Simulated scan of single mutants.
Amino acid sequence: MKHHAINYVEFAAKDLGSTEAFFHRVFGWDFTPYGPEYIAFSGSGLEGGFYQADKMANVNSGSALVVIYSEDLERSLEEVQKAGGTISQDIFTFPGGRRFHFLEPSGNELAIWSDK
C-alpha cells in the first residue's frame, strides 16, 4: 500500500441484498459479508464496503461523487437500468469526456464516465 493513498471507501445502504446484487450484476464486483449489517466489496479498483443505515450518498447533500470508468457509456447506462438502478442525470458532455449519474437500489448516487 502507498502511504497516504485512498484505499477504502464506505457507503450507507438501506438494503444490503439489493445493493450487493446490483453492483455484482452491473460491474462484476465481489462481496464478502461481515455479519448482517456489513458487506465488503472488491474488484472495483478501490476496496470498500456497505453498512446498514437509512442514509445515502447524494451530491445535492454535499457527498463526494464516486465515478466509475466505462469503455461503452451507452451500454453501461442500459445495464444500470436493467439491474434496477435509476438514472438521476442523463448522459452529458464535459471537458475530457461524457458521463451520467445514477442511483443504486439503496439510493446512493454514483456516476459513470467515458472518454470515448
Rank of each mutant, 00 (worst) to 15 (best):
F41I: 00
D15T: 03
R99D: 15
G97Q: 10
K2Y: 14
G17C: 10
Q89G: 08
F100E: 03
P95D: 13
A13E: 01
E79L: 11
F31I: 02
P36Y: 14
V9W: 05
R25C: 13
L65K: 03
E47N: 14
D90W: 08
D15G: 00
A53R: 11
D54C: 08
F50W: 00
W113A: 14
I112S: 02
G84E: 06
I6Y: 12
I87S: 02
F92H: 15
N108T: 01
S76W: 10
A21E: 07
A5C: 10
R25V: 12
T19I: 08
F50R: 01
I112Q: 01
N7F: 15
A13K: 02
V66P: 04
G48K: 01
E47K: 13
S70G: 09
G107I: 02
T86F: 06
I68M: 00
M56I: 06
N108Y: 00
Y51M: 06
I87Y: 06
A57D: 09
V66H: 03
G49I: 01
W113S: 12
I91V: 13
G35F: 07
Y69T: 08
D15L: 07
V26P: 04
I112F: 06
V80F: 08
P95C: 11
A53T: 11
I39W: 01
Q52V: 14
K2N: 14
W29A: 02
H4T: 04
S42W: 14
V9Q: 02
L77F: 13
H24D: 11
A40K: 10
L46Q: 14
V9P: 05
A64E: 09
K2M: 15
A21R: 05
L65H: 07
G96K: 12
S42P: 09
E20I: 07
E10R: 10
L110N: 02
I39L: 07
H101Y: 13
D115F: 10
G49E: 05
S63Q: 00
F31R: 04
S63W: 00
G28K: 05
E109S: 02
L16R: 01
D54Y: 08
M1H: 09
E79H: 14
Y8T: 02
W113Y: 13
S61Y: 13
S88Y: 03
N58V: 06
K116M: 15
K116C: 14
K14Q: 06
Q89I: 06
P105A: 07
N7S: 14
F100Q: 02
D30K: 09
F100I: 06
F41N: 05
K14L: 04
V59A: 03
F22T: 02
A111T: 02
G96Q: 11
G107R: 05
Q81R: 15
I6R: 05
D72I: 00
S44Q: 04
L73E: 03
R25L: 12
G43L: 05
